[in-house]
Amino acid sequence: MSFVTATDIFQFYGRRPILERVNVSVEEGEFISIVGASGCGKSTFLRLLLAQERPTRGEIRVADAPPAVEPGLDRGVVFQKYSVFPHMTVRENIVAGESFRSRFGWFSGAAKTKARKRADDTLARIGLDHVANQYPATLSGGMQQRLAIGQALAAKPRILLLDEPFGALDPGTRLSMHDFLTELRAETGMTVFMVTHDLEEGFKLGDRVLVFDKPRWDPTDPNAYGATITYDFDARDGGIPFQRIEEDTHVLQPA
């Protein structure tokens, strides 16, 4: 059984259809890139995965649990902006990834010391240890996004949702963020959904690339129909399909 399954998702805003008949199932550990033109429901689909919104029809199940009604610990998220808490220092932001689930959101005593220690390890891992005591506003865009990812991972979610996480970064920073994300993924083996505008980025990072588009188009009323998944590419091996022989064959393999 698949890890994440979306069955017959329809989403309307008022009477306007955004998504129609979206079906997809995803295995645990897959990296799914979601691409498509603006206004084609990519971000809406991500919000549905996040359970920030609930679909008008259909349901999304994670690990066969009943559909979630609100965002929770099992889904981590990084938005393009506003993903870190501006009033906390970099270290406190990481600690928040663990402490927010407690009763009052605070650690004290030994738990606090341990959490700070773990946060420092995380910061060293994501290369932000030299700014641990600064506030996010003093960091560059790339550092803020690294912090946001580190914070989301501190909560140990099963799924990581990324909404154009590198959209506001310059090309150089973006490349180093790709490496960073690839490494993190190799370490954690997490299921990732990433919405992006950048096709190249989608194919580079993703195992699968889902393309959202409107299958029907009424030129006199562009909003008449919703979008759905029109293509589902295998993006492994540089996007060249049929590179992996799944079944036993009698072809002589090079030793």
Partner: peptide, 16 residues
């Protein structure tokens, strides 16, 4: 809203 949603995904209750 992103900030609030982020806190929700970290397991924060309404009080937190």
């Amino acid at each position: 809203r992103e900030t609030i949603v982020k806190a929700e995904t970290l397991g924060a209750s309404s009080l937190v």
